[in-house]
């Protein structure tokens, strides 16, 4: 068994192990659960790109894709977190009450 065969096996195993995260994306009760699952799938896609590079023997090309994908995944996760934080229940409740109280005082 060469290392290429082993790499193909690792790639298939990664794809199969992504299924729980996919399940969490589909059935997650809140939006944040779905985003956590998507973030996990995105991180593993970085690894899959490296594995594809090893299988095709062009790691030097695919490593750039992997780095770019990791960067975009990170930015997407941060942006989703920021967006949902502003729409969140706790944040809005506290902000509206304190604003109201300050306005009353004024």
């Amino acid at each position: 068994m060469t290392f290429e065969h082993f790499s193909i096996g690792v790639g298939v195993a990664l794809l199969l192990l992504m299924i729980p995260a996919m399940c969490r994306i589909v059935m997650g009760p809140t939006t944040m659960d779905r985003i956590v699952g998507a973030n996990m799938v995105g991180t593993k896609t970085t690894v899959l790109l490296v594995i594809i590079g090893v299988i095709f023997g062009k790691v030097d090309m695919f490593i750039d894709f992997a780095l770019t994908y990791a960067l975009l995944n990170f930015t997407g996760a941060i942006a989703a977190a920021r967006y949902l934080r502003h729409k969140g229940r706790r944040g809005i409740v506290l902000a509206s009450t304190s604003e109201e109280s300050v306005c009353e005082r004024a």
Binding site: T30, N39, F74, I78, A81, L84, G88, R89, R90, G91
Partner: peptide
């Protein structure tokens, strides 16, 4: 990046209720 996004997502989840 992974640790940072985990922190940001957990914080957002807390404020999401």
């Amino acid at each position: 990046a992974s640790a940072t996004s985990t922190s940001a997502l957990a914080e957002a989840g807390w404020e999401d209720g």
